[in-house]
Design a protein around this nucleic acid. Structure first.
Lengths: 319, 319
DNA sequence: CTTAATACGACACTTTTTGTCATATTAAAA
DNA sequence: TTTTAATATGACAAAAAGTGTCGTATTAAG
């Protein structure tokens, strides 16, 4: 039992070193060099990828990544990890996809038959509703790692105007509606730009790094600074109330009268006018916008233009 | 070393049994009873919650859940698990929430300082955009477990008409837009009903169980039987192409000409006409619908009506 | 060609593990 | 009430495993 403990201690010690010699460990742990060699043999049999180099400036190296000491999990905990993985199933690409799979594999082999069945079944009984996407997003891990390390990157980006070269410092990544986005700070333009991760090609991590000034979270929280507060006033029918309560950006702002009709009187983001126009258009007669005038104007102009564009289509059919 | 291995073997053997005696194990492993007792002592020191009962029909029991043998993970794998957990951060309630936390805790304590920092940072650099909800959904785990076991459940449901008692067999759970839903088969009504999990109260698992006839997955796949296929033909400008490629239900159906303009010619669901109308309305001049006539009609009528409704509003301002 | 490292075998010595026996305690069955 | 079969624990000798000290081979840098 004492040996197992010392093996774990040694594993931990090794993890902190890039390279080490048997003599070093012998002194550290008060053991003979021979015993240390035997310990290292045991560790590699346990799965630690050790590589020894002979010769004067030789020593041992741990290949691969650091390995954690053996951990005891309960089956319930393993199940919970499989559950968490379900949430990721709907993304075509993920950072750390390979690692998640090897980790799940390690859990899976030790599960009891009964629990294996349960885990197998699970994917058929849980869904996280997200649009399935088929776009390849190969650089997710690199984007995330660069943002964690505060490193600059360089890549080609498919934008409206064709492919352009960008040099930026990513703040992080986020998933929205099945797509991955990456806000990144551009030195040239001195501001944060938002990129769609699937449109990023030929990424290269640059040496230039800088301690993080802004994280994704801060940026997401700050963003509302870019908002242009405008007053939104809408009257709603009974059905309009129901619909507005179903969207997160409005659910807390709908006031309902005793007769079931409703009213919205709140401040929202002026940058979202186009989205709002489309949303209230869908509601049709169930919502009547009182303010802002700009939103009414948008809807009105759009309606006029739409009429003009489809006039002939509808006309010919009717005749 | 031989001992550690035998300890693990014994752990595995114990896991398959509900109850056992020291003598049984002694015979199974070719050890003396005394040694088995000492092994069991070691195992409980390692964290296995063993409970021994004296007396004639006594024996050992493992309390709690099964424990997996010690597993060696790499740090990268641990990071990937923390990443997966990020995807769940936006749900107010989760099944297995407690277990996920204890599992992450076990990983966390063994991470190197460097990796701990990385993991701490991660939550600030990744987001899975989902509306934050504040509704309590306490029965998620029970719903999931019942669906896996094919068991019937009984609960009170807050529906439009007030609280009603339901007796159903859940097919599974799914998350959509930050809310949890549970489709479940009702024996009374002989069909699958869809429940919002946050509206379920006082759940009780019934003894009655039945091997699964339908899983959530099958149900979700079957649902489109309700679709009404219609032909959709749209011409797109360059920008229209870009926008349509950004929505999942169209991204695979956009054909792009050499000049950058595009064309859609596909079959979609007639039940979604209202949504489509709203979507193509937003695109404005970047999309021109050729078919179906019904969609054009919808957009046209809506535009006419919108004009009528807001005419005065815009007029008064202009004067 | 010396030095400092891995690699590994042999053997005596030390520590740990194991089996045996003894004893106490408990609870069900006879 | 006594017997029986289980846990629980201690003592001690025997067996096994682990350890240190050699020795020898091999390798590569200085």
């Amino acid at each position: 039992m004492a040996k197992s403990r010392r093996l774990v201690d040694m594993l931990m010690f090794i993890n902190t070193k890039r390279m080490f010699t048997a003599k070093e460990l012998a002194e550290e742990f008060g053991l003979s060099v021979r015993t240390v060699q035997r310990y290292l043999l045991d560790l590699s049999e346990l799965g630690l990828p050790l590589y020894g180099e002979k010769g004067r400036s030789g020593g041992y190296k741990v290949l691969k990544n650091r390995i954690l000491p053996p951990i005891l999990f309960t089956e319930e905990e393993a199940i919970s990890i499989f559950f968490a993985y379900q949430a990721l199933q709907y993304y075509h690409d993920l950072p750390f996809d390979a690692e998640i799979h090897t980790a799940l594999q390690k859990f899976y082999v030790y599960l009891s038959e009964e629990t294996k069945k349960k885990v197998d079944k699970m994917s058929a009984h849980i869904a996280f509703w997200n649009p399935k996407r088929n776009l390849n997003t190969p650089y997710l891990k690199e984007l995330l790692e660069a943002s964690l390390a505060g490193k600059y990157i360089e890549f080609l980006y498919d934008s409206k105007a064709g492919q352009t070269r960008k040099e930026v410092k990513p703040l992080g990544i986020y998933a929205h509606n099945g797509l991955w986005y990456c806000p990144a700070y551009s030195c040239d333009k001195q501001k944060v730009l938002l990129f769609r991760a699937d449109r990023i090609h030929s990424l290269k991590v640059l040496e230039k790094d800088e301690q993080m000034s802004l994280t994704l979270k801060e940026w997401l929280e700050k963003e509302p600074i870019n908002t242009q507060p405008i007053l939104l006033k809408v009257t709603l029918t009974h059905e309009g109330v129901r619909q507005c309560k179903g969207v997160p950006w409005l659910e807390n702002h709908v006031k309902v009268a005793r007769d079931g009709n409703g009213y919205i009187d709140t401040i929202t983001d002026g940058n979202e006018l186009n989205y709002m126009a489309s949303f209230f258009y869908t509601l049709g007669a169930h919502a009547f916008i009182e303010e802002p005038q700009e939103l009414i104007g948008k809807i009105f102009c759009h309606a006029e233009e739409t009429l003009r564009r489809y006039k002939n289509e509808v006309g010919t059919k009717d005749e």
